[in-house]
Design a protein around this nucleic acid. Structure first.
Lengths: 124, 124
DNA sequence: ACAATAATTTGATAATATTCGAACTATGGA
DNA sequence: TCCATAGTTCGAATATTATCAAATTATTGT
């Protein structure tokens, strides 16, 4: 990938609504959620929602998949992974930035435990 | 800490100049660099630089320390750590986002090896 | 006190981003 | 074909950010 520069990804997530959208999509898993469901959950009117979805799509953090008359949006984990890698490498490179990160270990461990189930869950 | 919400930190880094500043400060280590040196390296005029430094300071990603007639700015690793943790937990929570992350493991391993020394190193 | 250097603040301008009603497109069902 | 639903796009108003010259503050050396 290496599609865009990091600051564009960061800017895309640097807005409360878009960050909420992305979090929701991560929650939702690979299946995704359709636009109006997102709008309902977050209280965004269609036009505003579309604007933010377009932004997130443009930078590659999410993608939409048409299914009948709905468009299901889902998070692009790969892109996010690259962003996290970038931050990790540019915040910590040889400098040891993570002093009290007991959490990272937890997450990594949990990840390998969960890796099999592709997070296929209906919405609430 | 837990000072601000993540989207403010992301927005702060979501600008090319500010991201460059932060990277430079990470490079420089705990000692930091003074403002005009930053401006020279990045080609920013004083007023613009101050504007961005103030923004990064406000959200807690960097801090300035007066020393004689200079102000040395340095990165706040703790704040960045929290941001990375947030992203890790909110991009991957139980959902396995990192498929090909051989890197994350590397970093975590390196961290525990380095954890004792609290990142006290001169710059370059 | 004065001059020089380091940096911020002010103030004005320009550029971007955000919001949302209204119009439009697309799909599916009666 | 007509209607309803799901989304996007347009357009215009508003709000927020970014840039930088000029003025200001602070510190040091003479």
């Amino acid at each position: 990938m290496e599609s865009l520069n990091a600051s564009e990804l960061l800017a895309a997530l640097g807005h409360e609504s878009r960050l909420s959208i992305f979090r929701l999509l991560v929650e939702a898993g690979p299946t995704g959620i359709n636009a109006s469901a997102i709008g309902e959950q977050l209280g965004l009117v269609p036009a505003t929602l579309s604007f933010h979805l377009a932004h997130l799509s443009r930078v590659g953090l999410i993608q939409g998949r048409q299914e009948s008359r709905f468009i299901y949006y889902s998070a692009d984990y790969g892109e996010m992974d690259e962003l996290i890698s970038f931050l990790t490498n540019n915040c910590c490179q040889g400098k040891a930035c993570l002093p009290k990160t007991s959490m990272a270990n937890t997450v990594i461990k949990r990840r390998s435990r969960v890796a099999k189930s592709p997070a296929t869950k209906g919405n609430s």
